[in-house]
């Protein structure tokens, strides 16, 4: 027994070699397209690299980070990003779970509903967003035409700070609620129906069953949805870029939009890289905290 442990059996060694070999391509790919660019971006964030000053790049340490943290633009963008993420994820969670529960009970035509709800995810985002831009148009857009037909006053969808945020949320929810719906529906289908039936037999109302039994059992699935959606919402770019460009004023200028402006428009690559690294750190820390606190992904002793 002891001898066997100190000297691996030939088949075990072969097996390990095989595993390593199989892992190699994916690991190499990950290093090339994730880790290397990340390290490169981090290195750039420590310099004052600007494409408009070729050959004059200097190492500046953490100065870019200090500049961001001292800049009112950064904090304003951080507030807008946090608000957008919080609202988008909350609304999508409520709508997605609600629709999943309704469709779960429905048997006739549920597939057609599910298909219809999933369509927004299948449409090319930027094409859909440009269509929304025309639909939001205050004088010739379809939304205000509908309001006018109903005898209601027209709305300035993208021109005031408050409504611009609401309009962005409408589009984001239209596009991403189906994602939450998909995960929640999958979760519901995999739940053990016995405790739910037992609760019903015991006389619980449908609402009580949902609140006290279904939702707690569904929670690990929803945690996945929340993490994915929060990360995505945090770095939303296309919707804001096309619909408001960060305006009116700077009302919808998020951190990602700020990084784009600094990097691609102003060509201040070092400064923009620092912002991207800050966003990455915030994302990782927030996701880790969320997962640790909820504890849904801790390996269970029983398993």
């Amino acid at each position: 027994m002891a001898a066997a442990r100190s000297r691996p059996r030939p088949e075990a060694a072969a097996r390990r070699r095989f595993v390593l070999l199989m892992l190699l391509p994916a690991t190499a790919l990950l290093l090339a397209v994730t880790l290397f660019p990340f390290l490169w971006a981090f290195a750039m964030s420590l310099t004052d690299l600007a494409l408009t000053r070729p050959g004059q790049t200097r190492f500046v340490g953490l100065a870019n980070y200090a500049d961001h943290l001292a800049s009112p633009d950064f904090w304003r963008a951080a507030r807008v990003t946090a608000l957008f993420t919080l609202l988008a994820v909350s609304i999508q969670l409520v709508l997605g779970v609600g629709l999943a529960v309704l469709l779960h009970r429905e048997t006739r035509g549920a597939w057609a509903w599910r298909l219809a709800f999933l369509l927004p995810m299948a449409i090319t985002p930027v094409a859909a967003i440009f269509t929304f831009r025309m639909m939001f148009h205050p004088s010739i857009g379809v939304f205000n035409a509908i309001l006018r037909d109903l005898g209601l006053p027209p709305v300035d969808w993208l021109g005031t700070p408050g409504m611009a945020l609401v309009s962005l949320l409408i589009v984001d929810c239209w596009q991403w609620t189906p994602f939450v719906l998909l995960i929640a529906a999958g979760g519901l289908a995999s739940l053990d129906p016995e405790p739910l039936e037992a609760a019903e037999v015991d006389g619980a109302t449908p609402w009580q069953v949902l609140r006290d039994h279904t939702l707690p059992m569904l929670a690990p699935f929803l945690a996945v949805a929340v993490v994915f959606r929060a990360i995505d919402a945090f770095k939303t770019f296309d919707i804001i870029f096309v619909l408001t460009g960060g305006g009116p004023g700077v009302a919808t200028r998020t951190l990602n939009l700020l990084a784009y402006k600094q990097g691609i428009e102003f060509l201040s690559i070092g400064y923009a890289a620092a912002l991207a690294i800050v966003m990455l750190v915030v994302t990782i820390v927030a996701a880790q905290l969320f997962l640790r606190r909820t504890g849904f992904f801790r390996p269970r002793a029983a398993l």
């Binding site: 148009h137 205050p138 004088s139 010739i140 027209p154 300035d156 969808w157 993208l158 021109g159 005031t160 611009a164 408001t244 460009g245 305006g247 009116p248």
Partner: peptide
């Protein structure tokens, strides 16, 4: 200006003028 002028780029301006909305 029309309602929502705060979000007008050239595309919205041109559309409105072409359609007689401004």
């Amino acid at each position: 200006g029309p309602l929502g002028i705060g979000n007008y780029h050239w595309m919205e301006c041109l559309n409105d003028f072409q359609q007689g909305a401004v």
